[in-house]
């Protein structure tokens, strides 16, 4: 059974982190959606229709600005929200698993009657709870902004976007977890996870204009996140499986290695 004490302690210690990121997501959602009426009025869609299909795809498509639902999918959740989610997730996982070890508090925890797997699984659960809680910010920002611009969107669609966003952030966070927590590769955990995220996005965004990249597009997590958009159930399963593999690798690594 998970130790409530450790879970409660982590959530309490991360309370300002949670609040800060909720506000961050609220601000991003508000900012992006409040821009919609202006962008719609500027007839950007007509400008984009004059570009080649490949460049139209890079820009998010010609009909992105024609409806609020497409705008939310094509602009809000195409890059900006998942980018924030990825940054938050990597920072969170590195802090929980690598940061504790670097500070020395992990050694103290290991001296208590808490097994290694309990510690890791409790921290994973805490990270998941934090990720889910902070996505409230996305919803709140979108709802407020829609009310302010007198628009309404398909909230089921928004939910699917949010789920996809959480998943892609979680996946890259778990890469940091498996390297840092599982193998003690503290210095590289953040760097590798960030680099993977960047390369993954670059691959997915450039494949529309560079045919040579097409054979590799399925190597990118963004491919599963964006195709289709919002993410399909099948791709949710694939992304969840990727995350699970990272968890297993990290847990097995941590069970075997020296700490500190």
């Amino acid at each position: 059974m998970m130790t409530y004490g450790l879970l409660g302690k982590i959530l309490y210690q991360k309370r300002w982190f949670i609040l800060g990121w909720i506000l961050g997501f609220v601000a991003m959602a508000l900012f992006m959606i409040l821009l919609y009426p202006e962008l719609k009025a500027s007839k950007l869609d007509e400008l984009l229709s004059g570009l080649s299909p490949a460049l139209q795809k890079v820009a998010g498509g010609t009909d992105t600005f024609r409806s609020i639902d497409k705008y939310i999918g094509g602009e809000v959740f195409a890059l900006r929200m998942p980018l924030l989610s990825i940054i938050m997730s990597i920072v969170l996982f590195v802090g929980l698993f690598v940061g504790d070890e670097k500070k020395g508090t992990l050694l103290t925890q290991l001296s208590l009657p808490l097994s290694r797997s309990k510690i890791m699984l409790t921290k994973l659960l805490a990270a998941l709870i934090i990720l889910v809680i902070t996505t409230i910010g996305m919803y709140v920002g979108i709802v407020i902004a829609l009310a302010l611009i007198h628009e309404s969107a398909d909230m089921m669609m928004v939910t699917k976007h949010v789920v996809g966003c959480v998943l892609i952030g979680l996946d890259f966070g778990l890469v940091a977890f498996s390297l840092g927590g599982g193998f003690g590769l503290r210095a590289v955990a953040t760097g590798v996870a960030t680099l993977l995220a960047f390369l993954s996005y670059l691959l997915s965004s450039m494949v529309a204009v560079a045919d040579v990249l097409k054979p590799y597009e399925k190597l990118s997590l963004f491919h599963y996140y964006q195709n289709p958009s919002p993410v399909s159930l099948e791709h949710i399963g694939l992304m969840a499986t990727f995350g699970l593999v990272c968890v297993i690798i990290g847990l097995l690594g941590f069970q075997r290695r020296d700490v500190g």
């Binding site: 409530y4 004490g5 450790l6 210690q13 050694l107 009657p113």
Partner: peptide, 27 residues
């Protein structure tokens, strides 16, 4: 029970909060 001269505790908790966490781990 374990005590180190170089023990690192959670700086953002009070002494009481930390001890309650330790107590919960001992059940």
């Amino acid at each position: 029970g374990y005590l180190s001269g170089e023990m690192v505790l959670d700086d953002d908790l009070t002494g009481r909060q930390y001890l309650l966490f330790v107590a919960s781990s001992y059940g």
